[in-house]
Write a protein that binds this DNA or RNA. Structure first.
Lengths: 155, 155
DNA sequence: CACAAACTGGATGTCAACATCCTATTTAGA
DNA sequence: TCTAAATAGGATGTTGACATCCAGTTTGTG
């Protein structure tokens, strides 16, 4: 239902949201999020094209967010790589019904709308700030040199 | 987000739900629902495998529903051809977190759950019985010989 | 019985999503 | 200025979803 690319993009964006202004290399993001590095590189390039992240070339370069995590919704990320397709008109080409959807497609579109709304309502900052339970969830193998002080990450 | 195959399967099922006990040929369904006939044939075969429809070979044969429309939900159809994938465990293979999802994936799964629930709550009968507005929605080109008395169909 | 309507199942083709690799370019720092 | 760390971008490979076609089988009907 959600593409693999969306999953990869969200993992990368959440990771970057926890990194502040420090650029994070593709290799680092790939390791932390367990995404294939060469493919992640392409995903990040497309995220850069739409202005969600920017890249810094050269030594100590990498990717970082263009906006604050509280100003980036899950929907922003999803729509950047694999947009939620709302049903605007009946997929059958009958021109007679105008913009009103038939009962079947109205229900399908309602479901899409619910997903869209849920994704729009959540920011990366909220995901990061989520009160964690006592046991760290989806904890990375802790690598302090690269990720100092961040013992847990939401993945 | 929803596959083309799901769309095709739903169109066919809704059409069959309006046909009662009369078998409907692939060719007829394909024409009415504007689905490529050869592919629709495969989709119907898979719907038959899971017991949603059955086939009648030979002259005057075709496909018909195995159950009453009020006992078939949209989710039944969706899950038969392209199941809603719920997120049961964190997609990263960290074994440390057990069954609890991290904040990101809990939200993604919540969205999937909303879709699942919406689809489960609606039956084919409800889609057919939907009070139509004055203007018929998604009306087929009317072919009385094949589809007598059914001037409107929800597509 | 013969025929035509209709499904069955296998083989095949196309294309986009996912994935990898390599060369070129940029850039911080010794 | 030289080098190593990184991204940029194009070429290529793989796989599954979507789609088509055909030979074979079933079955109602004249």
């Amino acid at each position: 239902m959600l593409s693999q690319t969306v999953e990869y993009a969200l993992r990368a964006m959440v990771l970057l949201a926890g990194q502040g202004e420090r650029p994070c290399s593709v290799e680092t993001i790939a390791t932390q999020t367990k995404v294939p590095a060469p493919y992640l590189s392409k995903v990040l390039q497309s995220l850069a094209k739409v202005g969600l992240v920017r890249s810094q070339r050269g030594v100590a370069g990498g990717y970082l967010l263009c906006r604050e995590p509280q100003n980036i919704s899950i929907l922003d990320v999803v729509n950047s790589v694999d947009p939620i397709k709302r049903i605007g008109t009946c997929p059958l080409e009958l021109a007679s019904h105008g913009v009103t959807l038939c009962p079947l497609h109205r229900r399908l579109d309602n479901a899409m709308a619910a997903v869209e709304q849920a994704f729009e309502a959540t920011t990366l900052a909220e995901v990061l700030a989520e009160p964690t339970t006592s046991v760290p969830l989806c904890e990375f193998p802790h690598t302090p040199a690269v990720n100092e002080g961040n013992a847990q990450r939401p993945f």
